[in-house]
């Protein structure tokens, strides 16, 4: 009934100093927290800057693919990561957004939205992603008045209503499971085949009133101006337009990398993902990146955490060789 996270840490006064950090982490998801843990164990002067701890873990209701930890809520896994990190007294500054990152005279300058500036020898950029949009007519008009990108947040608004889930990965499959507690009818519309884990799809078999349209492309969200009323889609197998009246559309089709703050420093691919080498270093020496913001194709919690570890270890070596 109570999801306390506010009391899990007290802000360190390390952020009041103008001392140079060895390794500054931007982002508080699995990549950022694990990197901070590893860097701290190596004895680096480390700090984490993030508006919220946990990142996209909070959009996940159940996590069951992090080895050693079974059936845990996304928020609880985030708390476990945070607790472990704080046991090593890693300072974490939350509640503020980073607005600018620059490299001046071989050191990184990071500016927060309250105009505080921090300096670091090396930087890990692990900001993750924001929900990817379908980019179809009506999607923007009906955003938050029918169209949602956060199932855990918005599912209660669709009690006894018909909702559509767009997507074919694990997030979409989990969204269906979460919505089953609220909606009276769920329809999945996905442009290709399921990519989700079989174990999740097996759970779908228990959900009544679930209809799945694979190989079906969403074309348009329509409504009456105040609320969405349904979608139009194209069934690629039968080569016909279909109209699905519905009260909500939950879009779970992956993320867009939040790489805007370092695009002037590091190379990104066409999708805006940060290009990294095997040490997680970007094209900008001393600037590392890890997790969903990078070109790594499998966006998974355990992979992000592992990349964070690699970045911290590589940054440790980098500092040794550049000081």
């Amino acid at each position: 009934m109570f999801e306390i996270s506010v009391d899990k840490f007290k802000e360190s006064n390390i952020f009041e100093t103008t001392e140079l950090f060895d390794f500054l982490v931007v982002g508080g998801g699995p990549a950022g927290l694990n990197a901070a843990l590893y860097a701290r164990r190596k004895g680096l002067k480390v700090g984490v800057l993030t508006p919220e701890v946990g990142g996209q873990l909070h959009n996940t209701s159940e996590v069951d693919n992090y080895i050693g930890i079974q059936n845990i809520k996304g928020g609880a896994l985030s708390d476990a990561f945070l607790k472990h990190t704080l046991e090593l007294e890693v300072p974490i500054k939350t509640g503020h957004f980073v607005i600018k990152i620059d490299k001046v005279d071989e050191r990184f300058e990071v500016t927060l939205d309250n105009q505080q500036v921090f300096y670091a020898k090396t930087l890990l950029y692990a900001t993750g992603g924001s929900p990817r949009k379908l980019d179809i007519p009506g999607e923007e008009q009906y955003a938050n008045i029918g169209v949602s990108y956060c199932t855990t947040c918005d599912a209660p608004f669709f009690k006894n209503e018909h909702v559509i889930v767009s997507g074919g990965g694990n997030s979409a499959a989990e969204s269906v499971i979460d919505l089953a507690a609220w909606a009276s009818k769920i329809t999945v519309v996905h442009r290709s085949q399921w990519r989700a884990d079989q174990i999740l799809l097996d759970q779908h078999k228990k959900i009544p009133n679930l209809t799945v349209h694979l190989e079906t492309q969403l074309k348009e969200v329509y409504g009456d101006g105040l609320r969405m009323k349904g979608v139009k889609a194209f069934d690629k197998v039968n080569q016909k337009e279909i109209d699905i009246p519905a009260d909500g559309l939950f879009i779970e089709i992956g993320t867009i990398p939040k790489s805007d703050l370092i695009q002037h420093l590091a190379e990104t691919n066409e999708q805006g993902e940060v290009i990294v080498d095997r040490d997680q270093m970007t094209s900008c020496p001393g600037l590392f990146s890890a997790g969903d913001v990078t070109t790594q194709p499998y966006k998974q919690i355990i992979i992000s955490a592992g990349e964070g570890a690699t970045a911290a270890l590589a940054a440790t070596n980098y500092i040794i060789h550049h000081s």
Partner: peptide, 13 residues
């Protein structure tokens, strides 16, 4: 807000 929304408390604060 909804009580299941993890992104809501910072907005309220």
């Amino acid at each position: 807000v909804t009580l299941s929304c993890p992104h809501c408390p910072p907005a309220v604060s």
